[in-house]
Nucleic acid binder design. Sequence first.
RNA 1: GCGGGUGUAGCUCAAUGGUAGAGCAAUAGCCUUCCAAGCUGAAGACGAGGGUUCGAUUCCCUUCACCCGCUCCA
Length: 543
Amino acid sequence: MDMDKLVSLCKRRGFLFQSSEIYGGLNGFWDYGPLGTELKRNVKEAWWRDMVTGHDDLAAPPGAPEAFQMVGLDSTIIMHPQIWKCSGHYDLFHDFMVDCRESKKRYRHDQVRGRWVAYQGKRVFVTTQSGGDEGVAETAQRALKLFGLRGKDAERLAWEGELVSLMTVADFAQVLGPDAREPGTLTEPREFNLMFKTYVGALSGEEGAAFLRPETAQGIFVNFKNVVDSSRVSVPFGIAQVGKSFRNEITPRNFTFRSREFEQMEIEFFCHPTQSPDWYRFWRDRRYRWYVELGLAGERLRLRDHDKEELSHYSCGTADIEYAFPFLPPGEFGELEGIAHRGDFDLRSHMEGKLVRQGDSLVVETDAEGKPRHKGSGKDLSYYDDVTRERYIPHVIEPSAGADRATLAFLCEAYQEDKVPDEHGNPRERVFLRLHPRLAPIKAAVFPLVKKDGMPEVAQNIYRDLKQQFNVYYDEKGAVGRRYARQDEVGTPICITVDGPSLTDGTVTFRDRDTLRQWRVKVEDCREELAKVLRGEQLAISS
RNA sequence: GCGGGUGUAGCUCAAUGGUAGAGCAAUAGCCUUCCAAGCUGAAGACGAGGGUUCGAUUCCCUUCACCCGCUCCA
């Protein structure tokens, strides 16, 4: 599939627009047009319905260890800045970077290290990105090259001390960049913040500095105790949240795939530590199935378990649900959702402070004085089980999905081209979106075959009746074939046409988007028939 | 952030240092009895800013956006 055609269709029919377009656009931001808004709403509502309001609290679904509860939450985008310090985002997302004017490469200031060396009165800080013996060898090698010496002259170089961080160096004119041939090519360190910074309060002083959330998850963790204390849930249970998140991506690209403002659909599922591997597998499979059920059924969708090396320091299992987007190189997949086993990392972080791995356990990271690097809330977020009389910190399974990415994947998967016969029976190119009926922005279109003989009046009555239950669209302009084509292009599953026989026998035709099949339905049965078709029940073909 | 490429109507494409043109789409109407037909009407563009010039869509500079590669992506 040609991505350009989809992008063009999205703009032409009002699914997606570039943000601030009349001012030249803004990189990494996208607006949803009238139809895109409906589509994305449907994606989010399907998720909410399937995960939360439609979930049966009383019985264990297939693959689940036991029955569980699901509740919702809507937390704020701006939260206490300490949350991001304890969660680890502040340290991970907040770096100083240096650029090399010569090699055009960029490095993290804290990851470049090097050694001071002197030769014939010249003193240079030779850098490397490697540590340990490798770094020592590399700096030795590069110093020889810089001064035009051979290996046997190595002892003529006067080294000063061990490998140290670039952060200890003030004058960059004497620094030889990791990929440079001459010293002095590195820029001053520049602050690089992947979180959007803002200021709370009318005075924009640093004491009011805060961040737009880079994920919705933390809002759930910090409300864990509130939810437990207020909503009669007991472990195991999940808290779901849908909402905007913000990341200052360095290279937003690939349509809406990597946007700076995006929407997430996240669940934090709290369970007993001994049961957590079973719950992890349940959620991994459940979430994969959700995409399949809504139409991403082909080989372009896959479930991929992370390798051990790929796991975050706190995770004991992570899987990605990925889709082979058409804009990616063949064989590459883009992440739609990550399902992570996060252990007790998050709740403990917000109790004790930012955690780091030490051997097999997580401990509070400390500063030079032995105090916590980022202090936690100090609140007890453990859970007391009334039945077993056990107190513990629940483990967390986190299925974290991107609403915009899912929407984009559904669009890509739905895009179809085929040939249908025109009025003379000659094949004509057709573009249509084979969207799942639950996702389709418009559920049905109602047409009078021609704009006379009382057909519009009948069609309008059907339209008004259906409108009470479904998002339907009325159109009486031009040839009916054109109207069909327009609806196909935006994925409307059914077109209902009032024709000659309608006026005498009270039936109308239903036309199926994918097969072009038509069958007759009584006017008074339209609502029920449409509901049936949208539920995916067998089409009642009678003509 | 770097390098290369591209910016003309919703889309596809013209032309031009001196009034920017077409096809398709969209739109209003006529016609039309099942898959973008036809006729008529009206509407619609040089990404933005600056410079050179009597005059710039065209030449120059800057900027913004998009595409490709690098970099980045807890």
